[in-house]
Amino acid sequence: TIEDAIKKLLKLAQKGQPYTFGDFTVTSEEEAKKLAKWLKKQL
């Protein structure tokens, strides 16, 4: 689910690992949080 993807994304971001989700490449926890907010709006 999208919720699971968001959780995984935040965990990876906390470890400092870049994470690619579709067109987004997230390289920081701050970016992960922005992406998570955006994804929730898409639901």
Rank of each mutant, 00 (worst) to 15 (best):
K7F: 07
K15H: 08
E29H: 09
L43M: 09
E29T: 10
I6K: 00
G16M: 12
T25Q: 05
K40V: 12
A5Y: 15
K15P: 03
L9W: 08
D23R: 05
T25H: 11
L43G: 02
L39G: 00
K8N: 07
L39C: 13
I6C: 14
E30S: 11
K34G: 03
K11A: 13
T20H: 05
A36K: 04
E29Y: 14
L12Q: 03
F21R: 01
K8Q: 10
K33Y: 11
T1L: 12
L39S: 00
Q14D: 06
Y19N: 04
K40F: 13
P18V: 08
Q17Y: 15
L39Q: 00
K34V: 05
I2F: 10
D4P: 03
E30Q: 07
E30F: 12
T27L: 12
I6Y: 04
Y19M: 05
K11S: 10
K41E: 08
L43E: 03
E3D: 06
Q42C: 14
L39W: 05
L9N: 00
T20S: 06
K37L: 13
T27K: 06
K7Y: 07
K11W: 14
A36M: 12
K7A: 09
L9S: 01
K40I: 14
L43Q: 04
F21Q: 02
K15D: 11
T27E: 04
Q14K: 09
L10V: 04
D4F: 06
K15Y: 10
D4E: 11
T25L: 13
G22K: 04
K15F: 13
L12Y: 11
G22L: 13
Q17S: 07
L10P: 00
T1Q: 08
T27F: 13
T1K: 08
K7R: 11
K37R: 12
F24M: 03
L39I: 06
K41T: 06
A13K: 02
K15W: 14
K40A: 13
E30L: 09
T25C: 10
L35Q: 00
G22N: 13
T27P: 04
K8W: 14
L12K: 03
G22E: 10
V26C: 15
F24R: 00
S28E: 03
L43A: 05
K15L: 13
E3I: 14
K33L: 13
L35Y: 02
F24T: 02
A13I: 12
L10W: 11
W38G: 00
K7W: 11
S28C: 14
V26D: 01
E30A: 10
T25M: 10
A36F: 15
T20R: 04
T1M: 09
K40D: 04
K37I: 12
K11T: 11
E30M: 09
A36D: 01
D4I: 06
T27N: 08
E29K: 08
L43W: 10
K15A: 11
K33G: 03
D4G: 07
K15C: 14
V26L: 04
A13C: 15
K8Y: 12
E31H: 06
S28R: 01
